[in-house]
């Protein structure tokens, strides 16, 4: 069990037009060639030419999401910045690998190397907001965002910090798409995606929208272990299945692994509305960020996003939410979420 994290604001940049409105009411954009690709924000609204020169695609996207998230929270300087990413700025990593080969290890431009470091975005957020603080980055695929959240909860648990900016960022490139294709990521129904998400979370519930009541991380569990973990999670918080108003699942149509989500669906009572989102975002290491963003926004507006509904339940409130995501059956994460009254 963790100390609850109270989310005050949430922002998302994805392949859907969900950034400016911070909503998902617009008609959905389809994927192109098995890939969902970012709708990029207008950077000129945020940065000068001099600032933009140092930022590549993913750092721009991540920084814009972070800026708006802090703006929504009305906070100039968070007390910590924690992020998670599976692959960081792939464009920069690849650019530098190509440069090494093209110029035969001669004199090379340092910028792609600098930006390829996984914590480059954290540093930029810190610089942009002039935040001197705790600052770290987790790079563990489908656990990346969750370790950033867990670490923030621990830092609040011993009163090192009272609030934090927490987020994830991910991009896909042509080259990496091919690599993942060869590794079998797209062969059974999953579509590639991208997304950056930022959350402002605090120790205190004042002004907050959504509480992360608990978080469970399981590596390569068998199906029984998942069943047990979900039961234990509900029991630890004195909840029955009929108390769950909304179940968000990370279904990605991959015929090999979607049966995991059924383990939870099977247990649901008619009360629960079941949602899914990867038909709009695609799959990526830190896709769970979308589920958390959607949960925050739906609780805040009191409206479910219609485009996500898989099965409508009888409950009319959005109070208790269960969110389950897994990444190719390796990293499984369970979130127990609750609306802040």
């Amino acid at each position: 069990m963790i100390n609850p994290l109270y989310i005050k604001s949430a922002r998302a940049i994805t392949a859907q037009d969900c950034f400016n409105s911070n909503d998902l009411s617009q008609a959905s954009r389809p994927c192109t060639g098995n890939r969902f690709v970012y709708v990029e924000p207008d950077y000129s609204r945020y940065f000068t030419i001099m600032q933009l020169r140092r930022m590549s695609r993913l750092t721009r996207i991540g920084l814009v999401a972070a800026i708006e998230c802090l703006k929504d929270a009305g906070i100039a300087k968070p007390e910590a910045i924690l992020t998670g990413t599976g692959k960081g700025s792939l464009n920069d990593t690849e650019k530098f690998m190509h440069a090494i080969r093209s110029f035969q290890e001669g004199t090379l431009n340092p910028s792609p190397f600098i930006q390829s470091t996984y914590n480059a975005l954290n540093g930029l957020i810190g610089l942009h907001h002039q935040v001197n603080s705790y600052n770290t980055t987790y790079v563990h695929s489908g656990f990346s965002l969750e370790h950033a959240l867990l670490d923030a909860a621990l830092l609040m648990g011993d009163n090192t910090i009272r609030n934090a900016l927490i987020g994830s960022f991910e991009e896909m490139t042509d080259e990496h798409y091919i690599i993942k294709e060869k590794l079998g990521f797209w062969k059974s129904g999953a579509v590639s995606g991208e997304g950056s998400f930022f959350f402002f979370a605090q120790q205190d519930k004042t002004g907050a929208v959504l509480a992360i009541e608990d978080l469970q991380l399981l590596f390569e569990p068998d199906q029984q272990k998942i069943r047990n973990a979900v039961h234990a999670l509900l029991a630890a918080h004195q909840l029955q299945w009929q108390d769950i108003d909304v179940y968000i699942s990370g279904r990605n149509k991959d015929t090999r692994y979607d049966s995991y989500y059924d383990l939870v669906s099977e247990q649901l009572t008619p009360a629960t509305t079941e949602l899914q989102f990867k038909q709009l975002t695609g799959e990526f290491d830190t896709a769970s960020g979308f589920g958390l963003w959607a949960a925050t926004r739906m609780v805040e507006t009191g409206q479910l996003f219609p485009a996500l509904v898989l099965k409508k339940g009888t409950s009319t409130r959005i109070k208790h939410l269960l969110f389950y995501n897994q990444y190719y059956s390796k990293q499984h994460v369970l979130y127990l979420l609750k609306a802040v009254e």
Partner: peptide
Amino acid sequence: GLGLDSIDSLEMIVLMERNYGIK
């Protein structure tokens, strides 16, 4: 002036070498 810094200086070193052969 323009407000460049140490990383820009490294980028300009690359420019000097690639365009003018100056190491």
